[in-house]
Design a protein around this nucleic acid. Sequence first.
DNA 1: TTGGTTGCAAACAATTTGCATAAAT
DNA 2: ATTTATGCAAATTGTTTGCAACCAA
Lengths: 139, 139
Amino acid sequence: MPFETQDLKKAGLKVTLPRLKILQILESSSDQGTHLSAEDVYKALLEAEEEVGLATVYRVLTQFESAGLVQRHNFETGHSVYEIATGEHHDHMVCVDGGDVIEFTDSVIEKRQHQIAEEHGYELVDHSLVLYVRKKPQG
Amino acid sequence: MPFETQDLKKAGLKVTLPRLKILQILESSSDQGTHLSAEDVYKALLEAEEEVGLATVYRVLTQFESAGLVQRHNFETGHSVYEIATGEHHDHMVCVDGGDVIEFTDSVIEKRQHQIAEEHGYELVDHSLVLYVRKKPQG
DNA sequence: TTGGTTGCAAACAATTTGCATAAAT
DNA sequence: ATTTATGCAAATTGTTTGCAACCAA
């Protein structure tokens, strides 16, 4: 039994073709470090000759998110993008020249974020950090 | 000549009542550290007995952003919020329940961001940090 | 069989735009 | 007199939902 099937069952979701296909698309995009929007997934399905409605894509992505299978990000683009949840948190560094994306985590920052939230009487639920950088001359 | 008028002229925008009023509303909200959505501004205008269309509010806010008069933020709330541009950098903490926004800066995090960029051979140009928090029980 | 799942179309919310009118310079 | 701004309604975009038909367990 392929691991996609297991993942779905574990999430209490029936194993259907649309869900399997969407999961595969997200996985292969994850290999390339890409983040897909609902539209992107929908187009990928069409290219794969799969007849799946856009509404289903949205529903499945939402279910996957609730199940912890994927993570949703709302960058400043006006629409959500999804990526397979690895369990490991990371932030993003984006090169303003090439557009390269580097993933990183930093325990100092992570810790401070919790402290800051606490200091204001809150508990940290999530966070979004993006560093915009430029390659140093003579890098 | 009031500074609102100067700001508008400097931005190449005609000085109209809607624009003056919207600028004032944003300023007073800024004093309270609040971030307003287009709807919020629209409601504030109605309360002030100003007959301004919602479309105009959106147009004016967009123009203000292009002119650098205000900053637009897209938090995970589903709609944009605006604040007067102060020139001084700060990050945001957004309450996932009420949507309240708290501004903060933290020198530890600021410094680490520079270090991280350096460690990867980049120089930090800009960054965006949003903490999503929840009020602690017994706050 | 039976309850979860899908597709479609309609419903929505936030935001944008076309156009005729109105106001600023 | 020109140019730009406004209001309204209609259009767009991204996303959600109602419902009948459908399919996995």
